[in-house]
């Protein structure tokens, strides 16, 4: 059902009203377990990232989303779990890190392709807010799994935070080299920031 919905509705609509320019598609993993991290500017980010996967790998895509927001009411919860197939987690940091991450870890054991937005929340349109170190604590549990950085540009123009009016714009997607967990937290976060910054620079995007 979900596959069909994406094939006949979501992908064609995305291609028509938005349009996708993707660079380095070959670096996008075809199968899990893998963690894809991306910058977050719009509610459409997840939908567009998911639409890049087809067939078997599509079934394995699990976006990680804030439980407090996406499970707010029945309808949103239905859409989030049945259509988007999200992994809801609590955004508040607790002492029980393993417990908080356990649904993600379980999904990774099941060879899932995890989509994660380390900024934690949608930033100002097309401005990168600093990445939070939650990703570091998650990867500490699964140090051998690849992290693929993806930079998205354009969706913050199409549907930014705080706006309900959709305006068509092309989406640029840049897929970067994968990297792995590093014990040194500062080094790890620096690598992550650098990868994302480089991808953003490669796009040579105009001021917005």
């Amino acid at each position: 059902m979900r596959s069909l919905l994406f094939s006949i509705l979501v992908r064609p609509v995305i291609l028509f009203v938005l349009g996708i320019n993707i660079r380095h598609r070959e670096k996008l993993p075809g199968s899990g377990p893998v963690v894809i991290i991306a910058n977050h500017n719009s509610h459409l980010d997840t939908l567009v990232l998911m639409s890049l996967f087809h067939g078997k790998s599509f079934q394995k895509v699990r976006p990680v989303a804030a439980g407090d927001y996406f499970m707010k009411n029945k309808f949103l919860a239905f859409f989030s779990t049945k259509v988007m197939n999200i992994i809801p987690i609590q955004r508040k940091m607790t002492k029980d890190i393993q417990g908080m991450f356990s649904p993600i870890l379980e999904a990774l054991e099941d060879d899932s392709i995890i989509i994660l937005f380390p900024e934690g929340s949608r930033g100002e349109a097309e401005q990168l807010s600093r990445y939070k170190s939650g990703i570091y604590y998650l990867m500490r549990e699964v140090p051998d799994i690849d992290i693929v950085p993806v930079f998205l540009y354009g969706l913050g123009k199409a549907l930014p935070k705080g706006s309900f009016i959709f305006v068509p714009f092309f989406v640029d997607i840049l897929v970067g080299e994968s990297f792995k967990y590093n014990e040194n937290r500062k080094e790890f976060m620096d690598t992550l920031n650098e990868r994302m910054d480089n991808l953003g620079e490669e796009g040579q995007f105009k001021e917005w």
Partner: peptide, 26 residues
């Protein structure tokens, strides 16, 4: 016409405060 206009708007530098101007031109 729509596809050409969308490409054009996606390329040009623009002040995001005027985002709705683009909406009306569509």
């Amino acid at each position: 016409s729509f596809l050409a206009l969308k490409e054009y708007f996606s390329l040009i530098p623009f002040n995001r405060a005027h985002r709705l101007v683009i909406f009306w031109s569509y």
